[in-house]
């Protein structure tokens, strides 16, 4: 896990894309270990699959190597260390991992686990909550994905049209 992220500092962007895919797969394994099989499934498909393909596609359209940054790494390092220290300080009040009396375990989740059998009747509780109790989240998610899809299409389709315009500049003035 730590190894995958340590090597993300290579300058070849192709290797970066591959390492991010490996990182996603390893995190999917970690999710299985944490009992989140649905999340592991999605992470392996989306994180390791689709996002690697997207990054590779972008690399094909742009360049493959990065230039070393001229700015000094001291300021970012300082910012990162301060943020990390604040976050670690924040974990001091958190319950131990795996504790079954923590607030996250005692609030609404027992209700979901208990009632979803009678009210929904689906064996997988995650599906039951996702589609029913928290259906509005999924609705919002579809809205976000829809918006992002439109955005990507607008950005990319404009690209193709402009390239054609460059090639046949005499035939401009068509529908836009």
């Amino acid at each position: 896990m730590i190894t995958a992220l340590a090597v993300v500092r290579v300058t070849s962007l192709f290797a970066t894309a591959m390492f991010s895919g490996v990182f996603s797969l390893l995190s999917a394994v970690l999710f299985v270990g944490l009992d989140a099989v649905d999340v592991a499934f999605t992470e392996a498909a989306v994180g390791a699959g689709i996002s690697t393909v997207l990054v590779l596609g972008t690399l094909a359209l742009t360049s493959r190597h990065e230039k070393p940054s001229k700015a000094s790494p001291v300021v970012p390092l300082f910012v990162v260390l301060v943020t990390g220290a604040a976050l670690v300080y924040g974990t001091m009040d958190m319950p131990n991992i795996g504790s079954d009396t923590s607030p996250a375990q005692t609030h609404v989740s027992p209700d979901y686990l208990e009632r979803s059998v009678h009210e929904i009747g689906v064996p997988n509780v995650v599906t039951a909550i996702l589609a029913s109790y928290r259906g509005y989240d999924t609705l919002g998610e579809t809205a976000v994905v829809f918006t992002a899809g439109i955005g990507v299409l607008l950005l990319i389709s404009g690209l193709r049209r402009r390239r054609e315009d460059d090639n046949e500049s005499e035939e401009e003035g068509g529908t836009s």
Binding site: V39, L130, G140, V145, A148, L155
Partner: peptide
């Protein structure tokens, strides 16, 4: 606890949407 799993499922999909948009911006 199934609730974090549900929330993170949503977050993963939203994450890939933002990644796609960011990469499209890079191409542009």
């Amino acid at each position: 606890n199934p609730l974090p799993h549900v929330l993170i499922l949503t977050a993963i999909v939203v994450g890939i949407a933002t990644t796609a948009l960011g990469l499209a911006l890079i191409v542009r």
